[in-house]
Design a protein around this nucleic acid. Structure first.
Length: 549
RNA sequence: GGCCCCGUGGUCAAGCGGUUAAGACAUCGCCCUUUCACGGCGGAGACAUGGGUUCGAUUCCCGUCGGGGUCACCA
């Protein structure tokens, strides 16, 4: 009996690897084209880090006219979540990240290198496992979970490196006959890789981001096929990325330490390994300590959070790009109106250590992004957001024409307002402009310098009866407020007032404040001239009436 | 604990042996101004630490300290 017989005994009905090698030929791409992928597990709410990786992966593929695909890593059925694949797909597509190949729904996919769902690739992995067994490079292991656990405890007590290797790799030493005996008698087993590595030897590795990293060789006989017949991550990675023609494996740097294993797997399988691009995770400050953004503890770790808050996907992408390549900010400043697609991302310029997530900065990016939008675009985005997350806002936005007027206030000029950072800010910034909302609630008028009822009434009455004219241009409009101020004994110029404070009760600015507060019940608003024009005389009049009481 | 990675202002970060150590966000002050925002100007604020190497180290080497990752039939 030899290895070949053993392989046949374990995997009797499995194809030879030639079949797959032929089925998935090398990709025909232009020189330098990069093939990347994002390979999440369908375990529920998508993590911002996964989005980050996918975004980077898609961008570099696109930059080189390569391919970006989505592979679903569902080899751990225990962790699987219903509708997990759809969640991933929509999380990406909400950010405009659409794969060239891969899963496009829970069950459908596109592309020539599939299946793109690992649970559907079982026979493929088994074919390669069989191949390794034939070569004497893998073997069945009959150790039970309990035995392995006991072994680990022994190792820990003896303070030696834990794991299944060297003298501890019991089943490795079984003869082929012993193995087949056990199999035939129905003993349970899994398949382990027979590592040719030695811990006292070093390997050199060049990571695209981390640079040169030396490791001890891997000497662990890791599991490649689990009891359920599905592969472990390591084995699936090697098989899939080889067959799918991935040139650059972009993944979180928690994988860095398994590079020796992966390289070894590629080597023993006779394949050229891909380039590895280990991205530092996005971190969070937790009581002075850094830790990875956690889905359980940090709402902002979930991609869905950004949609809920109404942070524009463009802002999130720009922020991420900022973390990825810090020269993006400079590029953005000199290329104000260009699409981020035109920015060339360089993998080797990515930071080696994890950045702390900075919501303040993200929101600042959001402000800038939104400030460049037209009022139509603001309306449309706010409307779409409100449809899902804010009924009251949606109700306001039903009046499109009027909403558009509000959004046009101080927008479209060279110095646009920047007071909306996310769509959830919109309601508060416009609600007082709607009569039905404004009048339906008792407003709290915080008058400032001029705060006596009589003075206020005088100002409001005189203004609406004598001065206000909807047709006035801005200069005339303001000149009239000055005149009104003069008429009632207030200084017409602030400077004048400051020079002779004893001569006046207050100044034109204070008068304006009275108008502003009466009009909006706020002390801070956008340009009052524009507000009045949008509101119209009737509304102004009514607002004044209420404000007087 | 072993192995690996990292350490420039509060945060993100330029920097590749000689720099007044960029820039952005945040912060403070001033200006603009009828409020706020915008914008403009300015301020404060950093090379973790100890040894080397060198004429010269933020940059190179070693130690220390600090942070992170990893050591599964999870990915």
């Amino acid at each position: 009996m030899d290895y070949k017989d053993l392989a046949n005994l374990i995997f009797p009905d499995i194809n030879g690897i030639e079949y797959y090698e032929k089925k998935y030929p090398k990709r025909n791409l232009k020189e330098g084209a990069i093939v990347t992928r994002v390979a999440p597990s369908p375990t529920g709410n998508v993590h911002i880090g996964t989005l980050y990786q996918g975004f980077v992966a898609k961008k570099v593929a696109k930059q080189t006219e390569g391919v970006f695909f989505l592979r679903i890593e569902d080899t751990d059925q225990k962790r699987e979540v219903e509708n997990g694949i759809n969640q991933i797909i929509s999380a990406f597509s909400n950010f405009g990240i659409v794969p060239d190949e891969g899963m496009i729904s829970e069950t459908e996919e596109k592309g020539e290198y599939g299946p793109y769902k690992q649970s559907k690739r079982k026979e493929i992995y088994q074919a390669y496992a069989k191949y390794l067994i034939e070569q004497g490079k893998a073997y069945p292991c009959f150790c039970s979970a309990e035995e392995i656990e006991q072994m680990r405890q022994k190792q820990e007590q003896a303070k030696i490196r834990p794991g299944y290797y060297g003298v501890w790799a019991k089943c490795r030493k079984l003869s082929i006959e012993e193995m087949s005996e056990k199999i035939k008698s129905g003993e349970k087993y899994i398949i382990r890789f027979k590592s040719p590595g030695r811990e006292d030897r070093k390997i050199k590795h060049h990571d695209v981001i981390k640079g040169n990293v030396d490791f001890p060789e891997n000497d662990q006989d890791i599991v490649i096929i689990k009891a359920d017949g599905l592969p472990t991550y390591h084995f699936a990675h090697a098989v899939d990325d080889h067959l799918m023609g991935t040139t650059h494996v972009i993944r979180g740097d928690e994988w860095l330490s398994s590079v020796p294993l992966h390289l070894q797997l590629f080597h023993e399988l006779g394949w050229k390994p891909p380039k590895y691009v280990h991205i530092a995770p996005i971190m969070k400050n937790d009581n002075g300590n850094k830790r990875k953004l956690s889905k359980r503890k940090d709402p902002e770790a979930a991609v869905s959070y950004y949609a809920e808050e109404g942070i524009p996907q463009e802002a999130v992408k720009e922020y991420l790009l900022n973390i990825a390549n810090s020269n993006f900010e400079n590029w953005r400043r000199t290329n104000q109106d260009k699409s981020i697609d035109e920015f060339e991302l360089q993998l080797n310029k990515m930071s080696v250590s994890g950045a702390l997530f900075d919501m303040v900065k993200l929101l600042d990016v959001g402000k800038n992004v939104i400030s460049k939008y037209s009022s139509e675009k603001v309306y449309e985005e706010a409307y779409n957001w409100a449809k899902k997350y804010d009924e009251e806002l949606l109700e306001l936005l039903q009046n499109k024409e009027y909403s558009l007027k509000i959004f046009s206030i101080e927008r479209g000029n060279k110095k646009p307002r920047k007071d909306i950072a996310k769509w959830s800010d919109v309601k508060n910034s416009i609600i007082y402009m709607f009569d039905e909302k404004f009048f339906s609630k008792k407003q709290d008028y915080q008058y400032q310098i001029i705060n006596n009822k009589e003075d206020i009434s005088k100002i409001l009455n005189l203004y609406i009866e004598k001065y206000y004219n909807q047709e006035d241009d801005k200069q005339t409009w303001f000149d009239k407020i000055k005149e009104l101020s003069g008429e009632l004994g207030y200084a017409k110029e602030v400077k004048e007032f400051k020079a002779n404070p004893e001569k006046y009760k207050a100044h034109v600015g204070d008068v304006s404040t009275v108008l502003r507060v009466a009009l909006t019940a706020r002390t801070n608003t956008p340009d009052m001239y524009e507000i009045m024009r949008v509101l119209g005389k009737e509304s102004i009049k009514k607002r004044f009436e209420i404000a007087k009481n």
